[in-house]
C-alpha cells in the first residue's frame, strides 16, 4: 500500500459518499446518470467475485463491501425510492450503456492476463469501469447546469483515477515484478475521459463562475 493508492481509494470512497449524501439528504438525483451508476454496480459485482475466496487484507475486504453496498444502494435509490425516482431525468439519460457492456466483455475475452472465468470477469470490470462515466458525462453536457454536488462527484472520481496512475508509477519503480499493462492502459483511457471535464471544472472554479460544459 502506498500513499497514492490510499489517497485514491479514499477519494473514490468520498465520491460515493458525496453521491449517497446528495441523494439521501436532498432526496434528489437530478443530474445523476442512472446508467453510469448501473455500470459501476456491474463493475464492482464482476470485479469483487473473489470477495469471499481470496482474503487480501481487512482493508481490502472492507472497502469492497462498502463499494458494493453503496453502488447497489445508489441504483436502488434512483430506481425505486418513491421520492428520489421522480427527480431522475430518464429523457436526458439516454446513453445506450448496454452497447458498452458487450464490447468490453468481448475485449476481455481476447485481451486478458489469464483465460480463467475470474480473470476475464476482472478484466471485463476494468474495461467497463474505463467507459462507465460516459453516460454521466453525456448527461452533464446535455443538462449543462451542473449542481456542485454532481460536479464534485465527477471531480472526485477523476481525482481517484489520477491518484491511481501515480500509484502505478510508484509501484512500477518500487516493485520489480509489478507490470500490469492491461490495468495501466484501461486506467489511462479512463482518466483521459475526465480530462476535458477537469479543464472546465477548474475554469469555472478559477473564474468563480457556475460550471458549464460546452454544448
Amino acid at each position: 500500500m502506498n500513499i497514492f493508492r490510499l489517497a485514491g481509494d479514499m477519494t473514490h470512497l468520498a465520491s460515493v459518499l458525496v453521491l449517497l449524501l446528495k441523494i439521501h439528504t436532498i432526496k434528489s438525483c437530478a443530474g445523476i446518470s442512472l446508467k453510469t451508476q448501473e455500470l459501476y454496480a456491474l463493475v464492482f459485482a464482476t470485479r469483487y467475485l473473489d470477495l469471499f475466496t481470496d482474503y487480501i487484507s481487512l482493508y481490502n475486504t472492507l472497502m469492497k463491501l462498502i463499494f458494493l453496498v453503496s453502488s447497489f444502494s445508489i441504483v436502488w435509490y434512483i430506481r425505486h425510492h418513491k421520492i428520489v425516482r421522480r427527480s431522475y431525468d430518464k429523457d436526458q439519460d439516454t446513453f445506450r450503456h448496454y452497447f458498452l457492456v458487450l464490447p468490453c466483455f468481448l475485449l476481455a475475452l481476447v485481451i486478458n492476463e489469464k483465460f480463467t472465468v475470474k480473470e476475464i470477469m476482472w478484466t471485463f470490470s476494468l474495461y467497463l469501469e474505463a467507459v462507465a462515466i460516459l453516460p454521466q458525462l453525456v448527461l452533464l453536457q446535455r443538462t449543462r447546469n451542473i449542481d456542485n454536488l454532481t460536479g464534485q462527484y465527477v471531480f472526485l472520481l477523476g481525482a481517484y483515477r489520477s491518484l491511481y496512475i501515480l500509484n502505478w508509477i510508484y509501484r512500477y519503480f518500487t516493485e520489480p515484478h509489478y507490470v500490469h499493462w492491461i490495468t495501466w492502459i484501461s486506467g489511462l483511457v479512463q482518466t483521459l475521459l475526465y480530462a476535458d471535464f477537469f479543464y472546465y471544472y477548474f475554469q469555472s472554479w478559477k473564474n468563480n463562475v457556475k460550471l458549464e460544459l460546452p454544448a
Binding site: M1, D50, D54, S57, N60, E113, Y164, T183
Partner: peptide, 10 residues
Amino acid sequence: NDESNDHDEL
C-alpha cells in the same frame, strides 16, 4: 502481505 497478490487493488 497484500503486495504479492495479483489483483490486490480495488
